[in-house]
Write a protein that binds this DNA or RNA. Structure first.
Length: 566
DNA sequence: CCGTTCACG
DNA sequence: ACGTACGTGAACGGG
C-alpha cells in the first residue's frame, strides 16, 4: 500500500495548506488522528471534494477506511472540454489555463542518482509544492465549471465521467488473480522455442546478430543476404515490419519466417509471461491495473501498469497467456461482450436502412455486406467473400481509403476502389455520413458522438495532404468509437447500481476491455448474475440521451479462467 | 527520449 | 504526385 506522506487542501482561491503525515524528519501530525478528523468531511455528500485525477486520492483513502463522496475532477472536466486538443495533467492545464508553470516534481525530488522520495523532501519545500497543487486545482475547477456550462457539456461530465471515478477505483482495488506458476512454465516453453529459432536464424545469416534490432536485421536482409528488395520506412531505414517479412516468407525465404516466429514469442515472453508476475501485489496476491479515464481522444478508457486491455487472444500461444487469469476458489469469471457494437452504432448514426434491418433480423452482417458488394445471393457468399466484406466493414469504421483496404485484403487499389464504389452504392447513407461529418468538422474543428461528447480534430484543415487525410479518418472514426465507449460507460454504471440495489456484494466487476466486461462471481450464482449483466447491458439501447433504432446484442461466457471465455 | 514494432478492441 | 486503414500501452534498440 502506498504511503501517505501528506495532504494538501484549499478552501479558498489563493489559500492552501499542507498537512505532513509521514515525512522522515518526524515533524508530522499523526496520520490516524488527522484522518479521523477528515473522514466525516470527505464522506459528507453535501461537501464537494475537488481533485486532479481524484481516483488516485479515492483509492489511497479507501485503503484507510474512508470512502470519499461528492467528488469532482479537474482532469475529467478538461477531458470533456478539450479531448484531442491537449493532455490533461495538471502541469499542462495550469500552463494553458492559468498561464502559470507549477513547481515541478523533479525540482523537488531531483533526478537520477540524487533523486529522493517525497517523504525525504524538507517539509517547507513539500508545503510549497503540494499546497500549490491544491490551489491550482481549485482555480482550474472554477474555470472549467463555467466553461462546461458555456459549452453545454456539463451533462457529459456529470453522466459519463463522474460516476466512473468510484466504479473504476473499486475495479482497480479489486484486481484480478493470476496463476504465477502457470506463467513461469509458459515463459520456459517460449524460451526453448526462441533458442531453437535463434540457432536456425544464425545458421542462415552465417553470423550472430541482435534479432530484435531492426537496424541489424535490415542490414542482414538487405545487404548481406540480399533477399529483400529495397523497402524503406518513413525515416529511411530498411523496413522489417511483419508485413514485409510475411511477403518474403511467402516467397519461400526461411529467415524472415523464423524472425516472425521469434518476434511473436519474444513479445509474448517479454511483455506478458515474464512481466505480469512482477505486477502481482504481495498483499492481495492479485494484479491491479490502472484505468485511465482521460487518455484517449474518443472517450475510450486506457489501461496501464500493466495494460490489461491488450492481453493476447489471436494465436494459440497468445491465448495461453489468458489462461493465467483465473477466478478464486469457488468463483468463476464471467465475460460479457457487445456483439458488433461499432457496426450497430454506425447503422444508427448514419441511419443505414439496409444495415438496421439486418440487425433487427439478427442477420450475419459481414455475409450481408458480401452479398451486396459482390452482387450475389447471401447463400452463395463464400468464406473469402465474407473475409473481404468484413475488412470493408472494419475499414468503414476507420474512415476507409482504397489504399488502406487494398493493403489489408491484398488486392490492387483499383479492385479495392471498385469494392468501395459498390459498397457505397448499396449503403449510400454511409457515404453521406462521412462527407457530412468531415464538412462539420472542417468548420467547427471537432466532431460530436451520439451522446454529445466532443473530440477535437486539430489538423482537419492542415495544408499537408497526408495529415489532413489522417485527421479526416479520425473524424469519421471518433463518433463511432466514442459512442461505443459511452454505451459501455453507461452499462458499467447501470450494472454497478443494479448489483448494489440487489445487495449482490460478492460479484465484482474487475476488467473493461472496450466492448467487454469481466466479472468475478460465486460459481453457484453465475446463471443469475449473467442474466442481470446481460439485461443491464442490453437496456442501454434506451437512455435519457438517446434511444437506438437497432438492438444491442450481448454474448455471455463463464469459466474458471479468461482463456476459455471466447 | 524517439522510432519501430506489435499486443488488443 | 503522394500513398495511411481508427484508438491505445509496453518493450526494445540506439542515439
Amino acid at each position: 500500500m502506498a504511503k501517505l506522506v501528506g495532504i494538501s487542501l484549499s478552501t479558498k482561491i489563493g489559500k492552501a495548506c499542507y498537512i505532513p503525515l509521514n515525512h522522515k524528519d518526524h515533524q508530522n501530525l499523526n496520520e490516524k488522528e488527522v484522518l479521523k478528523i477528515l473522514k466525516p468531511i470527505l464522506e459528507d455528500v453535501s461537501i464537494k471534494k475537488i481533485g486532479q485525477n481524484i481516483k488516485f486520492d479515492f483509492i489511497i483513502l479507501y485503503h484507510r477506511g474512508i470512502s470519499m463522496n461528492s467528488m469532482e475532477d479537474t482532469m475529467l472536466m478538461s477531458y470533456v472540454l478539450d479531448a484531442g486538443k491537449n493532455r490533461h495533467n495538471m502541469d499542462t492545464l495550469s500552463q494553458i489555463h492559468l498561464e502559470h508553470k507549477p513547481i515541478s516534481y523533479k525540482e523537488i525530488v531531483g533526478v537520477g542518482k540524487k533523486q529522493i522520495s517525497f517523504d525525504e523532501v524538507e517539509i517547507n519545500k513539500a508545503k510549497d509544492y503540494a499546497a500549490e497543487d491544491a490551489d491550482i486545482t481549485y482555480r482550474l475547477f472554477k474555470k472549467f465549471f463555467k466553461n462546461l456550462k458555456a459549452e453545454k457539456l456539463t451533462n457529459i461530465y456529470e453522466i459519463f465521467e463522474k460516476p466512473l471515478i468510484k466504479i473504476l477505483s473499486l475495479m482497480e482495488i479489486e484486481g484480478i488473480k493470476i496463476n504465477e506458476g502457470f506463467l513461469k512454465k509458459l515463459s520456459d516453453k517460449f524460451q526453448n522455442k526462441i533458442d531453437k529459432l535463434e540457432k536456425d536464424i544464425f545458421k542462415i545469416s552465417k553470423k550472430n546478430f541482435k534479432i530484435g534490432s531492426t537496424k541489424q536485421l535490415g542490414e542482414i536482409m538487405y545487404n548481406e543476404l540480399k533477399i529483400s528488395t529495397l523497402k524503406k520506412t518513413k525515416k529511411g531505414s530498411f523496413a522489417t515490419s511483419a508485413s514485409v517479412l510475411e511477403d518474403l516468407a511467402f516467397k519461400g525465404h526461411l529467415l524472415p519466417k523464423y524472425v516472425l516466429e521469434w518476434r511473436q514469442l519474444s513479445k509474448l515472453k517479454n511483455t506478458y509471461s515474464d512481466t505480469l508476475p512482477e505486477h502481482i501485489n504481495p498483499k492481495t496476491n492479485r494484479v491491479h491495473t490502472s484505468f485511465l479515464l482521460a487518455a484517449t481522444s474518443t472517450g475510450r478508457l486506457a489501461s496501464s501498469d500493466p495494460n490489461l486491455q491488450n492481453i493476447p487472444i489471436k494465436t494459440s500461444d497468445g491465448n495461453d497467456i489468458r489462461k493465467a487469469f483465473v477466478a478464486e476458489k469457488n468463483k468463476s469469471l464471467i465475460s460479457a461482450d457487445y456483439n458488433q457494437i461499432e457496426m450497430r452504432i454506425l447503422s444508427d448514426l448514419a441511419d443505414v436502412k439496409e444495415l438496421k434491418k439486418a440487425f433487427k433480423n439478427d442477420e450475419d452482417i459481414h455475409s450481408l455486406t458480401a452479398s451486396q458488394v459482390f452482387n450475389t445471393d447471401i447463400k452463395k457468399v463464400n468464406s473469402d467473400m465474407r473475409r473481404k466484406a468484413k475488412a470493408i466493414n472494419f475499414g468503414i469504421i476507420y474512415g476507409i481509403s482504397q489504399y488502406g483496404l487494398a493493403k489489408q485484403i491484398g488486392v490492387s487499389t483499383t479492385e479495392a476502389s471498385e469494392f468501395l464504389n459498390s459498397y457505397f452504392l448499396k449503403f449510400p447513407e454511409i457515404k453521406e455520413y462521412m462527407s457530412s461529418t468531415i464538412k462539420f468538422c472542417r468548420k467547427s474543428g471537432y466532431v460530436n458522438n451520439i451522446f454529445g461528447r466532443r473530440t477535437h480534430i486539430t489538423g482537419i484543415n492542415d495544408k499537408n495532404f497526408n495529415i489532413r487525410n489522417f485527421q479526416e479518418r479520425a473524424a469519421i472514426n471518433a463518433p463511432i468509437q466514442g459512442s461505443a465507449s459511452e454505451i459501455m460507460r453507461m452499462a458499467m454504471i447501470r450494472i454497478s447500481e443494479k448489483l448494489k440495489d440487489n445487495k449482490i456484494y460478492d460479484t465484482k466487476m474487475i476488467l473493461q476491455i472496450h466492448d467487454e466486461l469481466i466479472f468475478e462471481a460465486p460459481s453457484k450464482d453465475t446463471t443469475k448474475i449473467s442474466k442481470i449483466i446481460k439485461k443491464e447491458m442490453t437496456s442501454v439501447q434506451n437512455s435519457e440521451l438517446h434511444s437506438f433504432t437497432i438492438p444491442l446484442s450481448v454474448d455471455i461466457n463463464v469459466g474458471d479462467n479468461w482463456g476459455v471465455l471466447h
